[in-house]
Design a binder for these strands. Structure first.
Lengths: 124, 124
DNA sequence: TTAAACCCTGGAGCGTGCTCCAAGTCAAGC
DNA sequence: GCTTGACTTGGAGCACGCTCCAGGGTTTAA
């Protein structure tokens, strides 16, 4: 696949794809003889993974480290696990914080609902 | 309260507090006759609210708009409600996305657990 | 009354994560 | 062969959210 095809498929700009590759988030993208990127199925799986992780806020640097470990082979399995566990914990904490904020927004919204319904009743 | 007291109480730097005030996120902070900020209880409630919303990723611009509406009085109750509902929806969507990513991390971690336990069994 | 510690403003600087652009190469259709 | 459009790299630029700093006033305690 060409870069524009992958771009459309995953909703990432070609610039973002090149940027990710430069920072080591997408390992080993092959090139045509004229230097154009040719994304393989495996490349696509990486891209989809990276997109998902970035969407949840994992930093580029951490993902880059994960990919680097992956490329070093089986000896890094434990390190990769530790990295994922740490990111999992941080993600869980962020979700918890956001859920509390969500509850607070719900509370505030229902307060406004009440204010508005009282105001409407007053008009009758 | 002084800015450094509020700073410690909420874990925000004095610079961040001044920055928020400049952008309209903390309305009407009084000053001492020499120009020092004197935070009231109500100021503190705003700060705590803003800190919570920022922690969940609500943009400064949106919060600033909310505060501006609040300061315009009762006629903006409906607009404030709409603003909160929209932010609530976006927050809910982000939480959903993050939960999916969490599930994916869990899956990957349990995969690594398996790889590691197989490797350990192989050593025996 | 003087040093240390705190506060002020305005503006520059910085980290993150892209996004855009110039200048050039390559490919496909006419 | 020529044009049009896609691709390349390297680097500049940008949006967001602070963070830091200079230069200067204030407060407090010795």
């Amino acid at each position: 696949m060409t870069i524009s095809e992958v771009s459309k498929k995953y909703g990432l700009t070609p610039d973002a794809l090149r940027y990710y590759e430069r920072l080591g988030l997408i390992p080993g993208v092959r090139r045509s003889k004229s230097g154009f990127r040719e994304y393989s199925e495996e490349d696509c799986r990486w891209i989809e993974f990276i997109k998902c992780m970035r969407g949840a806020g994992l930093p580029i640097e951490v993902l880059s480290e994960y990919v680097a470990l992956f490329r070093q082979g089986d000896s890094t399995v434990e390190a990769r696990r530790r990295l994922l566990v740490e990111q999992r914990e941080q993600l869980l904490a962020r979700i918890g914080e956001m859920q509390e904020t969500l509850a607070r927004l719900d509370f505030k919204i229902s307060f406004y609902d009440e204010v508005l319904s009282v105001a409407e009743a007053g008009l009758k």
